[in-house]
């Protein structure tokens, strides 16, 4: 079973890297960029056979390691 976990900074947490990327996009003349926030994507393969078990395992993985919930939110998608 394949899954994707997306970890993003919580709103309001300063993201210096996102700011630098935003500045670079603007200097490249890419129009209409209002703001950039950088995050992380994890593509994970699981042995779990059903979606519910997979989601539970991934939520556990996020809480224990993949996200620092002081500053980050996470989203789990089981792709099947």
């Amino acid at each position: 079973m394949k899954a994707r976990v997306t970890v993003t900074l919580k709103p309001g947490v300063l993201d210096p890297q996102g700011k630098a990327i935003e500045g670079a996009l603007k200097s490249l003349g890419i129009e209409g960029v209002a703001s950039v926030r950088q995050g992380k994507v994890f593509d994970i393969e699981l042995a779990a056979k059903d979606k519910k078990t997979a989601e539970a395992a991934l939520k556990n993985a996020c809480e224990k390691l993949l996200a620092n919930t002081v500053i980050e939110n996470y989203r789990v998608e089981v792709l099947g």
Binding site: V13, L14, P16, Q17, A20, N68, V70, I71
Partner: peptide
Amino acid sequence: CEAGLLPGVLMRNTRL
């Protein structure tokens, strides 16, 4: 901080 023994987080330096 990551272990939860101290509060907060150390983020990238503002000037990167």
